[in-house]
């Protein structure tokens, strides 16, 4: 019974924080920030299915983020606001097809080779988006993407994104605790043993890749609706890099770590990033500190202090 409540705590905090955003006074700016947080939160949580869970460092998940955004953006721009929703539904389907293809190619490689191949695919997608002006309007990006009337306005769109993201995150949370999640953890720790308990490492990795990429694409699709403006840089490798950083910042070993990381990162960027030109210097230093001293992120720090105080209180860690 105790365990059940423990599972609920992060969800209660989740609903309090992101639901509460709707009631912040004069919160236009904060609702806008909250939209970014929740959408990037979905991106980071999906990314962590690969990284924290399965042990696969993809440096190219921006490809799916951009893909989702461009499908949604181009469809709504060319066919009208009603197609915004249809495009959003088509996004995961297209992402499934693309990720099966790219996943099957890149998962044949391991470690650094996998990381670099995913990076190469994403950079290729970025290059194509920049150069194929006729289709994507190149470096200009796509502006003024129309949305259906119901989704217009910050509050309405936030509510919509919140519902979609929450459904997706719930699905990923179930996956995290599922037997399949157990296999992914096994692959991260000892893929050889997974093979010799009768499971194909490649196929499980591929499914993880497809799921991760599809949810990333949904996040990208939602992003196209925030300001109605998208740019090829959504495909760029620094986008993938930032998501990795946010994931590490929050903690890759806990399910909610990436969302915590995104929240802190976006708020920091809002406060610090606007007052300095040297924002990447700041995030470089944060990344350096996290990797060197706190590889388990904020969740890791919290658990450490949690255990520390539990011990002081005379409690025992292991039942």
């Amino acid at each position: 019974m105790m365990k059940r409540y423990k599972d609920l705590v992060p969800w209660i905090i989740y609903f309090l924080v992101f639901g509460g955003m709707l009631f912040v006074r004069g919160g236009g700016h904060y609702v806008h920030l909250a939209m970014q947080i929740i959408i990037l939160g979905l991106f980071a949580t999906s990314f962590n299915v690969l990284f924290g869970k399965t042990g696969l460092l993809s440096f190219g998940q921006a490809l799916f983020y951009g893909l989702g955004a461009y499908i949604t953006g181009m469809a709504a721009k060319s066919f009208g606001p009603d197609y915004f929703m249809w495009a959003l539904l088509a996004v995961p389907l297209v992402a499934i097809v693309v990720s099966i293809l790219l996943g099957a190619l890149s998962l044949r490689l391991s470690d650094v080779y996998f990381t670099m191949l995913t990076l190469a695919f994403a950079q290729l997608a970025w290059g194509i988006t920049i150069k194929w002006y006729g289709l994507t309007r190149g470096d200009d990006g796509i502006q003024a993407i129309p949305k259906p009337a119901l989704l217009t306005g910050n509050v309405n769109y936030y509510l919509f994104s919140f519902l979609v993201v929450t459904a997706c995150i719930y699905f990923l949370w179930r996956l995290d605790r599922s037997p399949f999640g157990s296999v992914l953890e096994g692959i991260r720790q000892n893929s050889l043993r997974v093979t010799f308990t009768g499971m194909s490492v490649f196929r499980h990795q591929l499914l993880a890749y497809v799921i991760s990429s599809s949810f990333t694409a949904i996040a990208g699709g939602l992003y196209a609706g925030i300001d109605g403006s998208i740019h090829p840089d959504m495909f760029y490798w620094t986008m993938s890099g930032s998501i990795i950083l946010m994931t590490i910042l929050g903690g890759m070993s806990g399910f909610f770590g990436p969302i915590i990381g995104v929240t802190i990162f976006v708020l920091l960027e809002d406060m610090v990033g606007r007052s300095t030109e040297y924002w990447s210097f700041v995030i470089g230093i944060i990344m350096l500190i996290m990797v060197m001293i706190f590889p388990h992120g904020i969740i890791g720090i919290a658990t450490y202090f949690g255990k520390f105080f539990a011990r002081k209180g005379g409690q025992v860690d292991n039942p």
Binding site: F51, G55, L57, F59, D111, V112, T115, R188, G241, I244, L245, I248, E277, Y278, S280, F281, I283, G284, I285, M287, L288, V291, M292, P295
Partner: peptide, 22 residues
Amino acid sequence: EEGAFQILLTYAFILIIDDAVK
């Protein structure tokens, strides 16, 4: 998971050196 952390550590160097140069 040394490999992943090496990539991330050196990625931090990129960000820092880029801006330091600027």
